[in-house]
C-alpha cells in the first residue's frame, strides 16, 4: 500500500541572532542553519493497517506526512502510495487519500457544515448520488445529523473534529492521514473520535496513518507503532512486542503498618518512592520474581496492601525517548 524507501529531507533555516548589532548585520548578511528533518527513513504500510506514528516535536513526523501526501518533495529516496509517487501524480493521487490536520480546519468557517461538504464533493468530482450516499452513511456513523446545519464557528472542538473526519472521508479515500486528530479534545470527545476511527477502519478497510502525542490514542487504535527521533526510525513493530520487551520491569506498590522499614536488602530491586507506610519498588523480573520480592517484604513488614502493575505505554515511551536521548 505505502512504501517509503530511504527518504531524506533537509531544511535550510535563516538564523536570527538577537541584539542590536546582530539585527543590523543580518540586514546585510544572513546565515543559515541546515536541519536534517528525515535521515534515510524506510518503512512500508499494509492495506487496512492502522499505523501509529509517534515521536517528540520536531522529530520529522509532519515532514513524513507531508511527503506521503504529496505536499513536499523529498531530497532523496522514494515513496510510493498505491503505486503513485505522491508529488509527481498529485492531482490523481490525492483523489484517493483523506487528510485531517488536527490543528487546522478544512471546513469553511462561517457557513453551515453541509455547505462545506457540498463544495468538497465538487472539489473531489463526485456524482451527487454517490456523495449523498456517503454523506448519509457518515452522518449515521458519526452522529452528525444535528450538526449539519450549524455554522462551523459555533461548533465545539469535539463536534468540529467529527465533522472534519467526515469531510476527509466524503470521497471514500483508501488512505486516511490523521495528524493529531485528538489534540485539545476533552476525554469524552477523544473516546468518540477513537471509536469512530476504529469503526471506519474495520468497516471500509481504510488504511490509517495516525500521528499523535496521546499514547492512549495509540494504545486504543494502532496495530503497529513507529517511533521517530531526530529524523531516524527508532522503533517499528507492534505495541504488544514493545510492551513485552519492557515488561521485564514491574512496579510493586506496598502499604504497610508503620514501623522501621528497610528495602535495601532485596536484590535487583530499586526504590522508586518511599514514605512512611507506603513504598513503590521497581523489580527487574529477569533476575528475581515478583513473588520472591513480596515474600521478602512480608518477612520484614506487616503488609496491608500490595499492588503490582506493568509499565504503561506512556512510561515505556518516556523510557524509549530517554534511551535514545531524544
Amino acid at each position: 500500500m505505502i512504501i517509503v524507501e530511504d527518504v531524506s529531507k533537509t531544511y535550510r533555516i535563516a538564523h536570527r541572532p538577537s541584539g542590536w548589532r546582530a539585527a543590523l548585520t543580518s540586514l546585510i548578511h544572513r546565515s543559515y542553519a541546515h536541519i536534517q528533518a528525515l535521515d534515510h527513513v524506510s518503512f512500508s504500510v499494509n492495506r487496512g493497517e492502522i499505523l501509529g506514528y509517534v515521536g517528540p516535536n520536531g522529530a520529522g513526523k509532519s515532514t513524513t506526512i507531508k511527503i506521503m501526501t504529496g505536499i513536499l518533495v523529498p531530497d532523496g529516496g522514494c515513496c510510493r502510495v498505491m503505486g503513485y509517487i505522491p508529488w509527481k501524480h498529485r492531482v490523481d493521487y490525492v483523489q484517493h487519500i483523506g487528510v485531517v490536520f488536527g490543528q487546522r480546519s478544512q471546513l469553511w468557517w462561517d457557513v453551515p457544515v453541509i455547505d462545506s461538504y457540498e463544495l468538497l464533493s465538487d472539489i473531489y468530482r463526485m456524482s451527487s448520488t454517490a456523495s449523498r450516499r456517503t454523506l448519509e452513511q457518515l452522518t449515521q456513523m458519526l452522529d452528525l445529523s444535528s450538526l449539519l446545519h450549524i455554522p462551523v464557528r459555533q461548533l465545539s472542538l469535539g463536534q468540529r473534529m467529527r465533522c472534519e473526519l467526515a469531510a476527509s472521508l466524503l470521497h471514500n479515500p483508501s488512505v486516511l492521514f490523521l495528524d493529531e486528530p485528538t489534540i485539545g479534545l476533552d476525554a469524552v470527545s477523544k473516546l468518540r473520535v477513537r471509536q469512530f476511527i476504529k469503526t471506519i477502519n474495520e468497516e471500509t478497510g481504510v488504511t490509517v496513518i495516525l500521528t499523535t502525542h496521546d499514547m492512549n490514542d495509540i494504545e486504543a487504535l494502532a496495530h503497529r507503532i513507529m517511533l521517530l527521533g531526530r529524523g531516524q526510525l527508532l522503533y517499528d513493530g507492534s505495541i504488544a512486542d514493545l510492551k513485552r520487551s519492557y515488561k521485564t520491569i514491574q512496579t510493586i506498590t506496598v502499604q504497610f503498618e508503620n514501623g522501621p522499614a528497610s528495602f535495601e536488602t532485596i536484590p535487583h530491586t530499586t526504590i522508586a518512592q518511599s514514605s512512611s507506610g507506603r513504598a513503590q519498588l521497581s523489580v527487574d523480573t529477569t533476575r528475581i520474581s515478583v513473588s520472591d520480592v513480596i515474600n521478602q517484604l512480608s518477612g520484614s513488614l506487616k503488609l496491608t496492601d500490595v499492588y503490582v502493575e506493568s509499565p504503561s505505554i506512556e512510561s515505556i515511551m518516556v523510557q524509549l525517548y530517554e534511551e535514545h536521548d531524544i
Binding site: 536570527r16 538577537s18 542590536w20 539585527a23 543590523l24 543580518s26 540586514l27
Partner: peptide, 9 residues
Amino acid sequence: VLSGLQYRT
C-alpha cells in the same frame, strides 16, 4: 524596533 529591522526585503 528590532523586529521591524528584520524585514529587509
